[in-house]
Design a protein around this nucleic acid. Sequence first.
DNA 1: CTGATTTATTGAGCTATATCAATTATTTAT
DNA 2: ATAAATAATTGATATAGCTCAATAAATCAG
Lengths: 231, 231
Amino acid sequence: MNGYSASTNCLNCTKSAKCFKQLIPSELEFINQNKTQILYKKGENICKQGAFASYVLYISDGLVKLYLENPNRKNINIKILKTAEFIGLSSIYGENIYNYSAIALKDSTVCLIEKESIRKLLINNGNFASEIIKWYCKNEKQLFTKIKSLGHKQMHGRLADTLLYLCNESFDQEEIFSALSRKDIADFACISTESTVRLLTELKNDHIIDMNGRMIKILNKELLKEISKRG
Amino acid sequence: MNGYSASTNCLNCTKSAKCFKQLIPSELEFINQNKTQILYKKGENICKQGAFASYVLYISDGLVKLYLENPNRKNINIKILKTAEFIGLSSIYGENIYNYSAIALKDSTVCLIEKESIRKLLINNGNFASEIIKWYCKNEKQLFTKIKSLGHKQMHGRLADTLLYLCNESFDQEEIFSALSRKDIADFACISTESTVRLLTELKNDHIIDMNGRMIKILNKELLKEISKRG
DNA sequence: CTGATTTATTGAGCTATATCAATTATTTAT
DNA sequence: ATAAATAATTGATATAGCTCAATAAATCAG
């Protein structure tokens, strides 16, 4: 066990999500017995859309990109997950496959938790279940935001949405942007890589953002929000 | 109380969702005490996106269209809800507002349930909570399907997706299509009404669908699925 | 039944954005 | 350090799909 990362034992894990705080020691020990911890290197796939979902995945320490794959086509980036977030939670009761793919944006420690164990906890501990439902509430809102962005906004608005999302203070900017290529940004906004580059240059020339290699900083957040709103 | 519709008393409601079947009589009685039943006429708004979400809504008998509103722009139709489905479930723990709007496609009986009561049940009854989570799993998958459709498919694929959804055997076709205008179909696929009309005519000429006024029937489902797949 | 309003349809032109191709910059491997 | 591979940028062209406008059909109100 190292000093800075997630613990291999759930009972003294300092990086646990709110839902795990609802568990009593014996329940935590139960989870501990039914999980495996794995280290994924940067760039490695943590799960693949359509693959058999054997476990629920929990990022005990890391940074992960969630995306939808289209046969023969480009991907749609959904969101970036940080430490203490779940991957593939919906496989507990949904279809037994992952609905999306996930890739490590930096070296990440992931706990593979038996689905059946989670199910047992949900039935026995209402507070745990409630926290999971809270997560779903937030998640749903986020997906609606994505749908609104894709459904009626055009390039400019979609890229603005993407930048506002990625520049969120809850992310380590250096870490995020150094890990994201232009194609990644394009896949968040669902526009072509070339259009993305062109629009970014435009935004830079208009002093709405600053760019330095892969690093992007928002200079005029209000205007960017306005662009997002206008669509 | 009438003979064919939902009961006004939860204890003898025959149109109850699976989650309510997990409740013991005292819990059902508790819900019963904390709900109001309202009849919405066809075309009436059941909830408005952004409005204060005082209750969780439950369709005890009806047909409802869920949609996202864009300021000054067209709507995005998300899905059609039938009897025994929830509206605004995510307001239990999410922001205290509705994430979407809902309109009655036919006269619908809706139960307004106190959010706090649902919260209490979730904490006290793990089976109830688990059923709600099951719902969220399905819901999430549906939203990803929508995102995939909007994110990279073009007109043809999006309309195919829409028709395959609306022609699902679980809907009463007559009821669904007589309630949906061309604009409604367009808003499901997120394309212009004019393009929708043009594409529908095209599909009819190719004998992939049959049209008669508002009524639409799929003649060649395999081909339509192929169009959906191709994008 | 009749005029008025809404909804559906069709055509023509315009615009946003993708695609293709070429060039430059950056990273990786030897 | 140099070659090779990958990523970013820029320009030119093509096209999907929107908007606008006009007409036709259907529904509604009196």
